[in-house]
Design a protein around this nucleic acid. Structure first.
Lengths: 237, 237
DNA sequence: CGACGACTTGACGTGTTTCAAACGAGGTGG
DNA sequence: CCACCTCGTTTGAAACACGTCAAGTCGTCG
């Protein structure tokens, strides 16, 4: 796990172009975004990242703000010995990488092949200085992030494996575009494990157990059918 | 533990006055705060809370913003069965309870007898609408909070008991006003356990072990002397 | 068809929790 | 002033959930 994580994220190398990792990333087109979370228009470039492509690294200057167009993104931190904690997944429509300070506190990678809209942070800050709603929107993005992470804390600090996986499935079910009870996980078991503070084996076993308990169904390892949402909610404590 | 936690926080009762819990809390005086984190002046009232006094409860309307004058505060969430996760401790100078949305997402209690400055949120919001630096300051407070919680996530998700306690001690050493190597913990072992996602017994054992390893000294259960900061840093990974 | 990566399953080890009891400091009352 | 209570903390022994190590399966792609 450790070596794998370290290999996947070459966050030590520090080449960057337009604040984006060059490796495999290619600027696609200039496009108008529409609204920034429903309140303002802005300009940016859409960039495609391959699976596991690095978007930015911990400690890099945070010159850009990102929004997922398609695909999925994970942000994470590594301990010295390679243990990885994923702090969040970003799905289409989600904004990430917005910092108040100068630097990114995390690394960001594409979970799957992803299309990301990139906007200059300085442009947003300047806009916020003139328009109150924009300033408010930026603050809100940070606040929503905070709320999400705070909820994750209870999961990491006080829930057992079953409860963690249940919480994860319910979160995904509500966020992933999907059928009424079916959805597709964009991330691997390892990603889920590193998000929930478990090992890949425990996650896998828990999935199987939830299936045996008839709480879920797994047509494929990535496709989840919620058979008994109530059972999951109960686990969610 | 469960019953104790539930008993300590009567967060179900919903009486409030001036957004403060009435029980044992008494308004002391009107006073000028000076600067809000070094950038603006404002008015507020100082209120004293007794040990374990409730400051606000999860789900209550967030009409006020709080700043610790003296003492210490914990914010936390409870699961249905009483498991408690403390998301943070606030020490003199720290601002807490600032929300972007209408409601508080957590409960807040005084860890020890505390003096808290209270300011109307609406006043701050109004001020922020006129002054950019204030808006920025509010955003920064939320962002610092986010950063702190994100760091805690690695601790909860990926560190063992020794590493968690070491991280905690180093955090406290840097935040508590103290001698060069000595400081006084304002919170109980139970609070520490609920902050680190451990049990009180594990925290206690780990303290003793760190003492045996000569990393720390414990003149009393609340007083900590850092004997070997390097050893703790190594544990901090 | 073979190889590779992701996932699953099994057996075993261990760190943390659980349950229980003892300890110690601070406070009260006789 | 000492006995006694209380509450937070420490310590011990046993149980268990999750981690570790290792093998096996499945699906995909060349």
């Amino acid at each position: 796990m450790l070596n794998q994580s370290l290999a996947e994220s070459s966050y030590l190398q520090n080449r960057s172009y337009l604040g984006l990792r060059d490796r495999n990333a290619s600027v696609k087109k200039q496009q108008s975004l529409g609204k920034l979370n429903g309140s303002l228009e802005m300009m940016g470039a859409t960039v495609d990242y391959p699976r596991n492509g690095e978007i930015y690294g911990e400690g890099e200057t945070a010159d850009y703000v990102y929004k997922v167009i398609s695909g999925a993104v994970r942000i994470y931190k590594l301990l010295d010995d390679g243990r990885r904690q994923i702090n969040g997944f970003y799905l289409p429509g989600d904004v990430f990488g917005l910092e108040v300070g100068r630097d990114h506190h995390f690394s960001a990678e594409a979970v799957s092949s992803s299309s990301i809209l990139i906007v200059k942070r300085s442009a947003l800050i300047a806009l916020a200085a003139r328009q109150n709603e924009v300033a408010n929107e930026l603050w809100s993005i940070t606040a929503r992030e905070l709320e999400h992470v705070q909820n994750l804390m209870i999961t990491l600090g006080r829930k057992n494996a079953h409860e963690r996986v249940a919480a994860f499935l319910l979160e995904m079910a509500s966020r992933v575009v999907c059928g009424k009870h079916t959805f597709e996980l964009p991330m691997s078991r390892q990603d889920i494990a590193d998000y929930l503070g478990l090992t890949i084996e425990t996650v896998s076993r828990t999935f199987t157990q939830l299936e045996q308990e008839a709480a879920i169904e797994l047509p494929t390892s990535r496709r989840v059918v919620l058979r008994n949402r109530n059972a999951l909610n109960k686990l969610n404590a």
